[in-house]
Nucleic acid binder design. Structure first.
Lengths: 149, 149
DNA sequence: CACAATTGAATTGTGTACAACTTAAAATAA
DNA sequence: TTATTTTAAGTTGTACACAATTCAATTGTG
């Protein structure tokens, strides 16, 4: 059984990489990576957001986000502005160009949907549940001794 | 539906990263990454193999493998030797230490199995099938015009 | 044989991931 | 209020992942 689980992990790793490649290929005319696209999706759906909240939603830390946001800023899809209330916080907002991308990239979800090969919403949702369960369980592994200081 | 498919892609990406983190945490006493572990698994199961074949099995190219193998060689878990027949080919073989790791790391699959939360072989296999299907489909995306030169 | 095309591995360059650290600012406690 | 702690973002360093290129060796073809 343990060997099958390791096969599941490898399959997960392979499927994730294949998916990232497919996205990046689709997004190549805009010179966007999958992770950059994810940040844009967050902003399209949620509006301006501080770096920390984007990080929470995508489970990415500032070590990943800071340089990524700098690149999105250089491409002029986003702007970064320090918050007035709390100058530690940097708010990320879409530029005109960044907002316009939403329509330009409307074909991406459709294209990707062909790639999952999932036929009905029912099975897709069940699939999602299992993936969420794996993510949650893996985040608990390995069972660490809680720091007590 | 397309939105659900994008959710599946993100869930895949999250689950894969959580899995890699769990492995790397488990492997940290040996200073091994998940990808390095995968290469060792290949060698434990298949014996010495040229770089190209390892790359085929893990779907990794020489740009990833060459530096990774150098690191495994520095740790003295593997050796690299140019083939006599075809000097383009580099064969990768386990060292004594590298072979010994197999027993030392026997606990890893068990630990990881707890992390998938998959209860029976039946559902695990079904899950595997779907992951393979996604990987295959994604590799076909986007439908590219075949170069005709 | 000669030469063009292909192959195997390595290298270079870009972009994540992520741990560990730094710095400044804000919240809390003493 | 001062001192301590916590928090937000950025920086540094390591290691994939992968496209593109290089180089040498081999294979194929005329």
């Amino acid at each position: 059984m343990a060997i099958v689980d390791e096969m599941v992990c490898f399959a997960l790793y392979s499927a994730s990489r294949a998916t990232t490649r497919a996205y990046t290929e689709l997004l190549s005319p805009w010179q966007l990576t999958y992770t950059q696209y994810l940040v844009l999706v967050v902003l399209w759906n949620e509006g301006s957001k501080p770096v920390r909240e984007i990080g929470e939603m995508l489970q990415l830390d500032s070590g990943t986000l800071s340089p990524l946001l700098r690149r999105l800023e250089n491409k002029e899809f986003i702007r970064r502005e320090r918050s007035q209330n709390d100058t530690r916080v940097v708010n990320v907002e879409l530029t005109e160009q960044g907002s316009a991308l939403r329509k330009e990239l409307a074909h991406v979800p459709e294209q990707i949907a062909c790639g999952t090969g999932l036929l009905d919403i029912q099975s897709a949702r069940e699939y999602l549940d299992t993936l969420h369960q794996i993510t949650e369980q893996m985040q608990k592994l390995p069972i660490k001794i809680q720091p007590t200081n």
